[in-house]
Design a binder for these strands. Structure first.
Length: 496
RNA sequence: GGGCCCCUAGCUCAAUUGGCAGAGCAGCGGGCUUUUAACCCGUUGGUUGUGGGUUCGAGUCCCACGGGGCCCA
């Protein structure tokens, strides 16, 4: 079976294969090793943007890019090439090249990579161009690009062949580059605050630090089942025990759960831990960071998302978790209620309580059902139930809740933070409670991590910890409603 | 997991009540020295996602499967 047979079998690609062979036969390398570029397209537009129509400079420029459009006349060819910075027109006039070279230029296809050298001019119609004197094919494209006007719109194809999406859709390139700037700014924010960026294991023998189903894999040499991390939390806090007092990590985490508009099995999480800080300190930091990142991504702290405005200028509203539930159910719920009364109340509000749920879990289900979606402007929901926060410190004034907050914007959670639980004896009890939940059928319960408890037994100072879902943040700041739009390669079923 | 919807040429899309599978772009051939999605003339290109069924006849109706989307849980 010839590896080019599928190309040869289709007339569209067969024609290009024939051109490729003809070039080789004529001694032209269709895939040369390098090209000396002197100018990016955008540089030419910046420098010569004011040139009047019909001008001819004596500046020689070498540009390189992919041919996106081609307009061919008898003795004249216009080609629009696209490089990483933008687009520039190549003006190929038969009078400026050897006839042989002009014919070769005419033979170029849309999609080909080309490098061209010549004077910077404007055409009679005023289009800034490079008047080609020499050129080189840099890479022959054997497959045609999508349609030049409508481009590539099919969401599945755009995800599966991201390279085509990036070639064809400027908006996709913009989202990709904005994501990079957001991550850079996040990194800068933490390093400027004296945090060390560290790396912790992806492969773990226990998947802790969050409540989620992990991916399982196997290490052959150790004959050991291992998990892909679902969080970086427990390792980062070990580092704080070790005296790295401010650490953060921006890394991929993996959760073996469904795929939808806001969930991908692998996603990017930022976690940070700061010794001697509590959750209120972290809250202030989160406001500052979100405002700074919004400014970098959009040029303003007032952003537009899904047709509505959101003001990310600090300070953000703060509301206690239980107060939010009280407001939503219109009754004075509390931890003193009987389980029967609370379950009845939950059912009245569309929440069917499971047997294992205590007060805190029911309150949180009510919160998710009744409150979360309505939180449009940035809102810190704070002091979550102890039952659903196994790694957070008990609140200094209320034994039922923890010193924790989540930042909600546009109905979704963007940050989750606590005053970290540093009491090893309390931590052990919380893990044991999770073990009981697991035994009762909760497969998202947190496993007991004895080495982590041992680390705590050496003394974790008071610590403020934070997690930020980076993909969600990028969605917010690029106004995308689907996570696949901010992931270059979202998880997909295989094509065949 | 449940419901609804989509899949037609490389791409973007048509196809009446179940009645000859089409257009534009791309490609190929020709023309053209200032285009901007160039234009003009001609022309190639199809297992209608896959497999089955109903029917004289299926892109269209039915079933299963695959891929995707939206909503709900």
């Amino acid at each position: 079976m010839d590896e080019t047979s599928d190309l040869a079998a289709h007339p569209l690609t067969a024609a290009r294969l024939e051109k490729l062979e003809a070039l080789r036969a004529a001694g032209v390398d269709p895939y040369p090793p390098r090209f000396e570029r002197t100018h990016l397209a955008a540089e030419l537009h910046t420098t010569f943007g004011d040139l009047e129509a019909g001008a001819e400079t004596d500046v020689e420029a070498s540009v390189a890019g992919r041919i996106m459009l081609k307009r061919s006349f008898g003795k004249l060819v216009f080609a629009t090439v696209q490089d990483a910075s933008g687009r520039i027109q190549l003006f190929c006039d038969a009078r400026r090249l050897d006839p042989e070279d002009f014919d070769r230029f005419s033979e170029l296809d849309v999609g080909d990579w080309v490098g061209a050298t010549g004077r910077v001019i404007t055409t009679k119609k005023g289009e800034l161009s490079v008047a080609v004197e020499r050129f080189a094919l840099l890479a022959k494209a054997l497959r045609p690009l999508p349609e030049k006007w409508h481009g590539l719109t099919d969401t599945e194809l755009r995800s599966r062949r991201r390279y085509l999406d990036l070639i064809m859709n400027e908006e996709s390139r913009r989202v990709a580059t904005t994501r990079v700037r957001i991550v850079s700014e996040l990194r800068r924010q933490f390093t400027d605050r004296g945090y060390l960026e560290v790396e912790t294991p992806v492969l773990q023998t226990q998947a802790g630090g969050a409540l989620a189903r992990p991916f399982v894999t196997h290490h052959h040499a150790l004959d050991l089942d291992m998990y892909l991390r679902i969080a970086t939390e427990l390792h980062l806090k070990r580092l704080v025990v070790g005296g790295l007092e401010r650490v953060f990590e921006i890394g991929r985490v993996f959760r073996n759960e469904g795929i939808d508009a806001t969930h991908n099995p692998e996603f990017t999480m930022l976690e940070s831990y700061e010794a001697l800080a509590d959750y209120l300190d972290i809250m202030t930091m989160v406001e500052e960071i979100f405002a700074a990142v919004a400014e970098v991504a959009t040029g303003s702290t007032v952003i537009h998302y899904q047709g509505r405005e959101i003001d990310l200028t600090p300070p953000y509203r703060r509301i206690r978790h239980l107060d939010a539930v009280r407001e939503a159910v219109g009754a004075d719920v509390s931890y003193d209620m009987t389980m029967d009364d609370l379950r009845a109340l939950a059912r009245r509000h569309g929440v069917e309580p499971e047997q294992a749920w205590g007060h805190g879990k029911i309150f949180d289900e009510l919160f998710e059902e009744l409150v979360a979606d309505g939180l449009w402007e940035p809102t810190f929901v704070m002091d979550h139930p102890k039952e659903i926060s196994p790694l957070a410190r008990v609140h200094r004034d209320d034994p039922h809740v923890t010193e924790r907050f989540e930042l909600f914007i546009a109905g979704s959670e963007y940050a989750n933070a606590f005053s970290e639980l540093n009491d090893p004896i309390d931590q052990r009890r919380r893990f044991e409670a999770q073990a009981r939940a697991k035994a009762a059928g909760d497969d998202e319960a947190h496993p007991i991590d004895l080495d982590y408890i041992r680390a705590l037994e050496y003394g974790l100072p008071p610590t403020g910890g934070l997690g930020i879902g980076v993909d969600r943040l990028v969605m917010l700041l690029t106004d995308r409603s689907h996570i696949r739009e901010v992931l270059l390669f979202p998880t997909l079923r295989p094509e065949d």
